[in-house]
Design a protein around this nucleic acid. Structure first.
Lengths: 341, 341
DNA sequence: GTGAAAGCGCTAACAG
DNA sequence: CTGTTAGCGCTTTCAC
């Protein structure tokens, strides 16, 4: 357990009979060095197992090789899968990940950003359900390049990677309609800031329109994304004697909550009511009935976000500030086909 | 987006009309400073928004204020909840978390440990399903204080925090027996290294013994902890015409896999077969039937592990190298009571 | 091509 | 109590 002093650049220099600047040159490949000398240094490095001290290096270069990741909560499946993608790519580029939970609390978000800034992260990816101008300003002011990931889409002028939410919602709604459902409730996220478009709601409306189904505000419900949110929302929906054909929920967790609410109120899913989710979380296929949902490439979202950050850090050109990744409708068991009835 | 040069200790010193050492003293509260001077420095600090550069600080103190966390995969619910606990406490102690995924691959584990070492983490918590002597040696050799967390218990001489696995398994088995089940299959983890005791198996055996139920090796099955593992194992179990009263699975995911396997083979759970899990993952209460399981204080496991690390780092005395946290049998819906039949 | 020297921002003796 | 000074380990001019 004794942390004996590690080899430094000095040791290597001495042992190789060169100056420390030469050693620095070979490890960074920054200036030409005679092959012979280079080899000698390399040998000593291998022999001693020398590893440059990143702290010292960062101190002078002002590069930390650290990426900060701000998540609401690692236990959130969405975040976790995105984080996986981030982690994978960061490793490729030799960046380390500094993690901070915010529990979606503003003060913790601020604290985390401060912390990351202090630690000199070169960039950060911010996963946050409810992006608002205040947050954007804070991050902007920190001067750290940031890419945002959110369950919902927002119109801020920020780097952002997300799924094509509007067409996704539209496709799923259309899918539901095709399967013979008419009274389709949308449980949309309640992360709602006035004057901002909600792409999923728009997609839903478009599909309705295309099929000449009147938009009924009483069955679109603002609700969170958790299991409990979905359960509550569905219960309310169902008990205000609405007769529903289907529920399209804002997340898989909420969808499952909704299904259980249906069960508890004596409805069978999908025979009486169909339910569709969003995200295709790991759990969606474990539940019975297996959840019909729209799958987002969560891992890829993280991966793409990290690639963006790297580009920004390197000052490379970014084609578009907002990248949209494709989605897929995953037809499993929680939506019935009413056409054959 | 311009990262303008931040205030340094020098700036503060100059502006306050003192030497940098005095500034250092007040920010670290390391040596007495006249109140008047102190106040002046504090004022300047507040005014300039000066934040000490942790890199420079770490370079000289050799303290990074970084804790490395090695997890198989953040998407794993067990790991994620433990990570939450770790994160929470680390924040309290002003430590940051450096995260590394290993996907349970040895070379990635090694690489991650190297990386963490390079980044000068002061300690690390290693979540690893299958601890073996090689890994322990590697970590030992790295000289970094480490606390291990594993789904299973091992007899290595390491810092470790876990649940009381043996009594937990025994209690659950007894619970099952009390509910009138006799033919109880144990799906145990297959992370198996010869000559090491499996505490859960022992607990299971003890309960059987106490109730004069003969141990039947044909219905204890080695299986992993994933949904797929559980599904497969249960299918095999059921198709080799065993008549089972209950299945006690090694994880909630595996338990749910088992339940679905039962469904798919025409058995009803819990009416035909009862199923119990382990962990009480978030999802356990979302599934229907709600999973009867043993709950481990995952968050606390992480929290305690981090506290241990801090103690080790500070050279404080540790009462016991292995701490065992309590568990609870959570009786929900997936186990029936056969006594009233 | 290579070395000497300055300095990144900070802490920690060492004097006074 | 406070200032001066010497590094921590490394990169980077600037000479040679």
């Amino acid at each position: 357990m004794v942390t004996k002093k590690p080899t430094t650049i000095k040791d290597v220099a001495k042992q190789a009979g060169v100056s420390i600047s030469t050693v620095s040159r070979v490890i960074n490949d920054s200036k030409p060095v005679t092959n012979e000398v280079k080899q000698r240094v390399l040998d000593v490095i291998k022999e001693t197992g020398y590893v440059p001290n990143p702290l010292a290096r960062s101190l002078v270069t002002r590069k930390s090789n650290l990426i900060g990741v701000i998540v609401p909560e690692v236990t959130d499946t969405f975040s976790a899968e995105v984080l996986n993608g981030i982690e994978e790519i960061s490793k490729m580029y030799n960046y380390d990940i500094l993690l901070a939970n915010t529990y979606s609390e503003r003060d913790l978000e601020i604290k985390s950003i401060d912390l990351l800034k202090t630690k000199q992260v070169e960039g950060m990816v911010v996963i946050c359900w409810d992006i608002d101008q205040e947050l954007v300003d804070i991050i902007e002011k920190s001067g750290i390049p940031a890419v945002y990931i959110s369950k919902t889409n927002r119109d801020f002028d920020i780097y952002n990677v997300a799924t094509k939410n509007e067409p996704a919602a539209r496709d799923m709604t259309n899918f539901l309609i095709e399967k013979g459902h008419k009274k389709i409730s949308l449980m949309r996220t309640n992360y709602q800031i006035s004057n901002l478009s909600d792409s999923r709601l728009n997609g839903y409306k478009k599909a309705l329109e295309e099929n000449n189904i009147p938009y009924d505000e009483s069955i679109v419900k603002a609700c969170g994304t958790t299991y409990a949110d979905g359960y509550m929302a569905a219960k309310e929906l169902l008990s205000s004697n609405n007769i529903l054909d289907a529920i399209f929920a804002t997340s898989d967790e909420a969808a499952i909550g909704a299904i259980n609410a249906c069960f508890d109120m004596g409805y069978s899913v999908p025979d009486d009511i169909s339910v569709a989710g969003f995200n295709d979380v790991e759990f969606a296929k474990m539940y019975r009935p297996k959840l019909t949902t729209v799958s987002q490439p969560l891992f890829d979202i993280g991966a793409v976000a990290l690639r963006m950050i790297i580009k920004i850090i390197r000052g490379e050109e970014i084609d578009e500030k907002k990248v949209k990744l494709p989605y897929r409708i995953i037809d499993r068991e929680s939506v019935s086909d009413r056409n054959n009835k």
